[in-house]
Amino acid sequence: MNELATLFRRELALAWGRGGGPMLALPFYACIATLLPFAVGGDHAQLAPIATGISWLALALTSLLSLERLFERDFEDGALDLLALGAPSMVATCFIKCLAQWLATGAPLAIAAPIIALGLGAKPELWSLIFTSALLGGLGFAFTGGVGAALAIGSRRGGVLIAVIVLPLFVPPVIFGATAISQAADGLAWQSGFALLGAYSLASVALSPFAMAAACRNALS
C-alpha cells in the first residue's frame, strides 16, 4: 500500500508540473472556448442554447492534451520498465496513473467548466450540474484516454494517433453529459443522462486498467 502511495505522489507531481497539467490544460480550454463563439457568430441568441454543448466539446478535446505524455514519457526514460518490475501489479500502476491524471487535469477543468459555460451564456443555476458532470465525465475521459495512451506507446505521431483511438470512446460520455445538462436547462428530468454518464465513467475506471496493463506489457515485451 505504501508503494502505491509513493507511486501516486510521483504521478501527481509529474502530471501537475513539467509542462503538463492544469497550467497547459486551462489556457487551452480557454482558447477553444474563445474560438468557438467566433466560429458560430458570437450572437448571444445563437450562442446561449449551445453554450453547454460547446463547453463539453472543449472539455473533451482538452482532456486529450496531456495524454501523450502519460505513458510515453515513462517508456522513453525506462521508468515504465522499472514500474513493470515493481511490486504493484501493472493494473494497479495504470489505475494510479489515470487517477493522478484525473486529479491534475480533470478536476481543474471541472472547476473551469461552469465558468466557461456561464461565460458563453448558459443559465447560472446550472453551474452545480455542469461542475459535477464535468468532474464525473473527466474521470471517464482520463481512464478511457489512458487506454489510447497505452496503446500508442512507441508509435510515430503518438498525439494524433491517441486522438483517433480515443475519440470513439469519448462519444458516449459527451452524448450523456450534454444530454443531462440540456435536459436540465429545459427543465426536464436530467437524472437518466447523468446516471448513464456515471455508469460509463465508473465502468471505464473498473475495466480500462486491464486493457492499459495489457498494452503496456505488449510495448515492453
Binding site: 496503446l151 500508442a152 508509435s155 510515430r156 494517433l161 483511438i165 462519444v171 486493457a211 495489457a214 505488449n218
Partner: peptide
Amino acid sequence: LFFLGYMALLSAVDDEAKATRAANILAMVG
C-alpha cells in the same frame, strides 16, 4: 471509427507483432 482506429494503430507502430497486439486490444475494447 473503431475500424479506422484499428487500422490507424496498425500502421503507426513499426514493429508488426507489437502493432497487431496493440490493435487487437483496441478491437476487444470496442
